[in-house]
Design a binder for these strands. Structure first.
Lengths: 226, 226
DNA sequence: AGGCTAATGACAGCCACTGACAATCGACAA
DNA sequence: TTGTCGATTGTCAGTGGCTGTCATTAGCCT
């Protein structure tokens, strides 16, 4: 390495997290990327943790120090997405009616999600991973449970906004559950469809949210436009 | 074995399933009952399959011949309940509007479920197990996934009833998803509440179904009755 | 430079689950 | 009744996810 010492002691910004932290982040990112890559190419079940660890050249034990389990790695990106929505919702003005806040938060969330995700994994990998989740029973199960937890947090958040008690008034949980249900149907449809681009999901979300009313109508004999 | 041959060749009803079948059923029932008993007393995670098998005095391998896994045993009753609902829905007159059919099927389902369940496990055990499911992450996850599968079946069923294509028209899936969401909120509320009797869940279901409209209303400032 | 602490690797072990093979037990007919 | 056939079961061995423990290593700070 000769005299390149300056590189190691580079006098960068003071806020630099330090070598140890940077190394941890790199290891985690590498593990996550390798995991997703393997999951999406060979399938989730056919990928062992040892394989992932080996691809990054760390011990299996280390993998489990960064992720609670194989599932956690597979759902890490999805978790970021959901966190993004919650943040999006928190940013809504307090005066907004709850359901409008939800709708706007979600639509706005889809617009800005790409930028947030790309910093860790390429968008295309996220898309492929989503399909793996939908088609792998144990992953889908874990995903649904996490979504349910997120819904609970959102329900509490909305209840607080409106000054209600979640346990006394069923409306927050009901509304959020309904909303979540629509989101699930939407993303499922999106993931199985042709156009899996980032814009398609936004359109689909808006369209399906508008369809809730008609769907709850007594009869479905009236034809759909489009 | 002496001359006790008559006992083995007992000339009972012709429809008697035969010793082999009866033995299988007994083993399965015993395994299921022991499993639920252990799950509800010590907790799901702290119960090993070996323990369950030992309690029935069979090998661990045999347990896995009767159940796909620990989960399957834990969710066996829940599965019966969902199947009961689907049957209930199938029995609805074809002319009935889809959402009314759903509502009636569910309410009627709760009325008749007790009788159906008791034939295998005591109701009280079912109640306890439900709480275990709700409070055990991996079980809740598996439960939600199965519910999602049931919803898909129901969506197809309703679509067929109405002569629609589930993939072209989002309304069946949307309606069923919304309905399922209400059911989940309802049963969750029921399981955490005081009155966990069979009648309480029926009332709660009806009440929450009626609350969906108000919950989707723009603002929640209007107070609730009750 | 050297001590402190966090990160890692290397075992060892538990538990859910599966495949394979041999022993056993009920069904059915001779 | 007895003997054959096929289903049920137990045993054994092995895989993979996951955890506790402990020694080693490597960044950090004085």
């Amino acid at each position: 390495m000769k005299t390149a010492g300056t590189a190691g002691t580079a006098p960068r910004a003071v806020s630099r997290p330090g070598l140890r932290e940077r190394k941890k982040r790199r290891t985690r990112d590498a593990l996550l990327r390798s995991a997703l890559e393997l999951f999406t190419t060979q399938g989730y079940e056919r990928t062992t943790v040892d394989e992932i660890a080996e691809a990054v050249d760390v011990s299996q034990r280390t993998f489990f120090r960064y992720f609670g389990g194989k599932e956690d790695a597979a759902l890490a990106v999805q978790e970021m997405v959901e966190a993004h929505f919650v943040d999006s919702l928190r940013a809504r003005p307090p005066g907004e009616p709850p359901l409008e806040a939800l709708r706007r938060a979600v639509l706005e969330g889809w617009d800005t999600i790409s930028d947030a995700v790309v910093t860790v994994v390429p968008v295309e990998l996220y898309l492929r991973m989503f399909r793996v989740i939908e088609s792998t029973p144990v992953l889908l199960a874990a995903h649904l449970r996490r979504s349910a937890e997120t819904e609970e947090r959102i329900a509490r958040l909305l209840a607080e906004r409106e000054g209600l008690d979640v346990d006394a008034d069923p409306r927050p949980r009901l509304a959020v559950a309904v909303f979540g249900a629509v989101m699930r149907v939407t993303s499922r449809q999106w993931s199985t469809g042709e156009d899996a681009g980032p814009e398609a999901i936004r359109e689909l979300t808006a369209a399906y949210l508008d369809q809730v009313g008609p769907a709850l109508t007594g009869n479905w004999r009236t034809a759909l436009r489009r």
